[in-house]
C-alpha cells in the first residue's frame, strides 16, 4: 500500500467510522442477546488488503481508540488488534489466497482470535468474569455474526483503500488505456 497523507487520512476515517458504527448501531442490534463486532473485522481486512505492517499499526491505533472509553483497560484492545492486523496481513503475504470467499475465513478467524485473546487477557488481569458456557456461546455467536457480515465489510474496506493499492484494477485499466497497451488498441 502506498503510504501518503491521503491514505493515512482515509485509514483514520475508516477507523473512526467503524468505532462509531459499532458503538451506536451494531452493538445495539443483538441476535440471541449478542451483537456483531465490526472492529476486529475492519482491522483484519485492513491488514489483509494493505499488508501486515499497516494492519498492525492500524490495529494498534484503533485498539487504543477503543480503549479510551472508560469501561476498557488501556492496552488490551491495542494488543489484541495489533496481533489481528499483523496476522491477517501475513496470510495475504505468505499465501495470497485467490478464492472469493477467503475474506470470510479471514474475518471469522480474526474475530475468534480477537474474542479469545481478549478473554485470555481479561482472565490474566484477574477480572472476575462469568466463566460459563454462556461465554463460549457468546464467542461463537459473535464469530457467526461476523462471518455473515464479513463480505460486505470487506467490500467496503477494499473500496475505501483500493486507490492506494499498487495492483488496483481500476488504475491498471487506466494505465492500459493511456499507454496504448489495451488489446482493443491493437485490433
Amino acid at each position: 500500500m502506498t503510504v501518503s497523507g491521503a491514505s493515512v487520512f482515509r485509514l483514520a476515517l475508516l477507523g473512526l467510522l467503524a468505532w462509531l458504527l459499532q458503538l451506536t448501531v451494531v452493538s445495539q442490534i443483538t441476535i440471541f442477546g449478542v451483537p456483531a463486532d465490526l472492529t476486529p473485522l475492519v482491522v483484519a481486512f485492513v491488514g489483509y488488503i494493505a499488508g501486515s505492517t499497516t494492519g498492525a499499526v492500524f490495529g494498534f491505533a484503533l485498539g487504543m481508540f477503543v480503549d479510551l472509553t472508560p469501561e476498557h483497560t488501556l492496552g488490551v484492545n491495542s494488543l489484541v488488534f495489533t496481533a489481528v492486523g499483523y496476522l491477517a496481513g501475513r496470510i495475504r503475504e505468505l499465501r495470497d489466497p485467490a478464492h472469493g470467499l477467503a475474506p470470510v475465513v479471514v474475518g471469522a478467524a480474526a474475530t475468534a482470535i480477537a474474542a479469545v485473546g481478549f478473554a485470555l487477557l481479561q482472565f490474566l488481569l484477574g477480572v472476575k468474569a462469568p466463566v460459563s458456557l454462556l461465554l463460549l456461546r457468546d464467542t461463537l455467536m459473535i464469530v457467526l455474526l461476523n462471518t455473515l457480515i464479513a463480505l460486505p465489510v470487506y467490500a467496503l474496506v477494499h473500496r475505501l483503500l483500493a486507490t492506494f493499492l499498487p495492483d488496483d484494477p481500476r488504475r491498471r485499466r487506466r494505465r492500459a488505456y493511456t499507454t496504448r497497451l489495451s488489446p482493443l488498441s491493437r485490433a
Partner: peptide
C-alpha cells in the same frame, strides 16, 4: 514495527493496571 507496537501495548497495560482510578492514564480516559 510489530515488536514496538506489542511493547507499547504491554507498557500501557502494565501502567494502567498498576495505577489508581485517579491516575494519569485514567485521567486520559476521562
Amino acid at each position: 514495527v510489530l515488536v514496538v507496537l506489542v511493547a507499547a501495548s504491554l507498557i500501557l497495560l502494565t501502567a494502567y493496571y498498576g495505577e489508581s482510578s485517579d491516575g494519569r492514564l485514567h485521567g486520559v480516559q476521562r
